[in-house]
Design a protein around this nucleic acid. Structure first.
Lengths: 338, 338
DNA sequence: TATATCTTGGAAAGCGCATTCCCACCCACT
DNA sequence: AGTGGGTGGGAATGCGCTTTCCAAGATATA
């Protein structure tokens, strides 16, 4: 039922070897007359090479794995977009795994990618402070078997990847906010078990330290929009007094949490930035259309995805890590209102 | 270097056949004692099955293709999330292709998925009014070769999929807006070559017709946030007089265009909804945190992705099409201000 | 005890293709 | 005319696994 290379060869009156050489980029290319016959035959029969068979014969599958926490989260979908873009034209296809932040699902994805003999895998934002040894071990196995691993966020020592300077950028953001006049900070931390969160948190603290300040509160929670909404709502419920004393400035561990917090503040009948100033992290695309515009630390998400793809394509076998600096962007949401 | 099944078999002192039966779900399962030996050997050696070889031998690859226009667009990323979710636990892996709205890239993806012998492919929002014959032909070929095709949006006659009632929902939205008091409508149409856009547009027109109205303007453009921004900006520049006469109501073909338009309106120094009321379509997640809240037609995006996945998994060979109705949700952005 | 029926493990034949040899042939040069 | 190099096509092997098909042992039936 399905047309195979051998069928094409027979139809064209040549050997399978020749047909193969014509239809796929071989180093040897048959005479044009023959080639044309083969191409016509393939066309006539509607031949499609079997990628599995090719993969097996070439021992290379033409696949790249991409693991993200949640493809519906703009942070990850931007990165995914960049990866696709960077891979365009390379002939590589991406296998996607959106893990819903579940470690087991993540491991499963790594195992699957190992089985599918993907050329490499891009791992976005997966490092945890505690308990990612299994993941690291799996990744190590994968590398030993010849796969490349590109980590976005915090590369493992000795691997390729993009290292986001979460801590430094966070500190810089706080510096600028202090400069503006802010003194009363609340940290909306997210899941403190994520290295990204930990680093950003550490950066916030460092910035505060420099100014001789300390946070009014550090609120852990889920690293999502709903997490931000929930935690902020609880805080506002419990800390009316705090707010009454004057403007506070909320440092959210990422933009989606900041958006959740924004809504929490509004539901509480408070104003941004007059009562509660608000800063996020990542600069996801949707911030552009928010009123007030939201202060954040800008990360070149799309470009990061693309760079990761290029590192995968590139020949850099050495453990090369590129550092990505975030740029604080002060917008209306953190206007200082004494 | 890489451990093969044969290595495991040798290590365990059994034949490859037996090892295969133990390690992968075969209908025959060897005695427990033997099985245990094999499992231990596999563990010891760090064996990972070669999925390509399995695919070849079984002639089934365990893959599903997903084609979207732009994975960074919340509409598609929500659907992608739903698809992943629906596939979870099925053992199927998804190959993603984000085509950046390029027909050629889309075709390439279909061809690749054909080559990879994916069990099926989910195609989101790809139908065009004009010029998608090649795509349709490719999809047809794919189906003839035994693949399932699930289309989200407008299924082809005779295929599986989710049919979104764009037209009906659009009409209903206009009805409700007219009910509210709106009379002066502008349609922000997007790329009129997309069937989705055409249908929504037709629905808007029908709604207006019913009320004996016609649109002040129909503005085609690119079906993205930037497209919305650009087109709206141009319109506002050109039509100051129109606006001066009183509130207009902009019907955007989707939410991201509406968000772009929102920003255009603000940049022009006008207010939403007092000067320009605004309605979108899709109900993407980020609308939740907008002020003013944005009127839209709610579509269960995540669930749609999941349903598509389930249709793929399901045994429904018959051409079954499920109709998805959109629900107009009136919010602050369309408050009527006489 | 002899024969028929199950089990169970193994041998071997693919799955569809790439690729290494190998051979036949042609051209050029001496 | 003879040799060497070059070119172009085909036979055959192997990629790693699944799955018949077989045979031998175990169990059951008469």
């Amino acid at each position: 039922m399905v047309v195979r290379l051998a069928d094409v060869a027979r139809e064209a009156g040549v050997s399978p070897a020749t047909a193969s050489r014509v239809l796929n980029g071989s180093s040897r290319s048959p005479a044009e007359a023959i080639a044309e016959k083969v191409r016509r035959a393939a066309e006539r029969l509607g031949y499609f090479p079997n990628a599995q068979a090719q993969a097996l014969a070439r021992s290379s599958a033409g696949l790249v794995g991409l693991i993200v926490h949640d493809i519906a989260d703009p942070y990850f979908s931007s990165i995914a977009h960049g990866v696709q873009h960077g891979l365009h034209g390379s002939g590589l296809r991406v296998m996607l795994s959106s893990t819903d932040r579940d470690g087991e699902t993540e491991m499963e994805a790594v195992r699957a990618f190992m089985s599918y003999r993907t050329e490499g895998i891009v791992l976005a934002g997966s490092r945890t402070v505690d308990g990612d040894e299994p993941l690291i071990a799996a990744v190590e196995t994968y590398r030993k078997n010849g796969g490349k691993v590109i980590m976005i966020g915090q590369p493992l020592p000795g691997t390729l990847g993009l290292s986001v300077d979460n801590r430094g950028s966070a500190t810089e953001l706080v510096r600028q906010l202090v400069e503006l006049g802010h003194r009363r900070f609340v940290i909306l931390a997210g899941d403190m078990n994520l290295v990204t969160v930990k680093d950003r948190h550490a950066g916030f603290i460092e910035g505060l330290d420099e100014a001789g300040l300390s946070a009014l509160a550090v609120l852990p929670g889920v690293f999502t929009r709903d997490g931000g909404l929930e935690v902020m709502t609880e805080y506002l419920d419990a800390s009316g007094a705090e707010i009454a004393q004057g403007q506070i400035c909320v440092l959210a561990a990422n933009d989606v949490m900041a958006l959740g917090a924004l809504t929490a503040v509004r539901r509480a009948g408070l104003r941004v930035p007059q009562d509660v100033a608000l800063a996020g992290f990542d600069d996801i695309a949707t911030l552009e259309d928010m009123i007030p515009s939201i202060t954040t630390v800008q990360l070149p998400l799309d470009s990061m995805g693309e760079q990761a793809a290029l590192m995968l394509l590139g020949a850099e076998d050495a453990a090369s890590v590129r550092v990505i600096d975030g740029t604080p962007v002060l917008r209306e949401s953190t206007t200082f209102c004494p």
